[in-house]
Design a binder for these strands. Structure first.
Length: 197
DNA sequence: GGTAGGATGGGCT
DNA sequence: GCCCATCCTACCC
């Protein structure tokens, strides 16, 4: 890990594309929340429609409402009674689609993140999982629906993007549509979540 | 190095 | 009542 400078906030048009394309393009971008930030190293696409692993596949409910809204907003959901996961909404309003942020490389506010995650003994464990990174960055359902193009939770370019190679695999922890190649990770990055592939 | 089991509560059938 | 887009601890090589 090295000193990192941030570039411009991602425009709403960035998110208004096909779900797996956005999932791939999000690798190397930066999630900034208050005094903490991390570079995205692992994502999963949840396109909705006939993809039964997607929360939106069973229709518009109170929980999934934001997934059917305009792109560039946060979908945060509560899972396993304890954890919260961050997604970004993609595609035009009326069309479901979102991308789960599965792992970050810590780049800013590391002492704050360590304080929020005392269970993480190693830097490598601080944000290497969807429940871990929301704890580290302080993201909760209070950020449900947040506009990612303005405010305290935003996504940015890196000032000097790195060249990366991308691994594509099935998504982790799902049972329906489990074979579809919709998980994207930066090859060789040590902050990718520990599930094996 | 590895893994089995439990914590814990909202959403939906 | 069952199913989760998970994580941590204890325990075993």
């Amino acid at each position: 890990m090295s000193v990192v400078r941030f570039g411009p906030i991602l425009k709403r048009s960035f998110y208004d594309r096909e779900t797996s394309e956005v999932a791939r393009e999000l690798l190397g971008k930066v999630v900034v929340h208050g005094p903490t930030a991390g570079m995205i190293v692992e994502t999963e696409a949840y396109p909705g429609g006939d993809d039964l692993a997607s929360h939106s596949a069973r229709g518009l409910t109170e929980r999934t409402r934001v997934i059917f809204g305009p792109p560039g907003h946060a979908y945060v959901y509560f899972i396993y009674g304890m954890y919260e996961c961050l997604n970004v909404v993609v595609g035009a309003a009326g069309t479901p689609g979102c991308v789960l942020v599965r792992a970050l490389e810590p780049v800013w506010g590391i002492e704050t993140m360590r304080r929020r995650r005392p269970a993480a003994r190693r830097l490598q464990d601080l944000t290497a999982g969807p429940g871990k990174l929301t704890l580290a960055l302080g993201i909760t359902r209070a950020q449900y629906g947040a506009d990612l193009t303005r405010g305290s939770l935003v996504l940015r370019e890196l000032a000097e993007p790195r060249a990366i190679e991308v691994d594509v695999t099935p998504r982790i922890g799902i049972s329906q549509c489990a074979e579809r190649p919709l998980r994207f990770a930066i090859r060789g990055n040590r902050f990718v979540s520990p599930a094996k592939f």
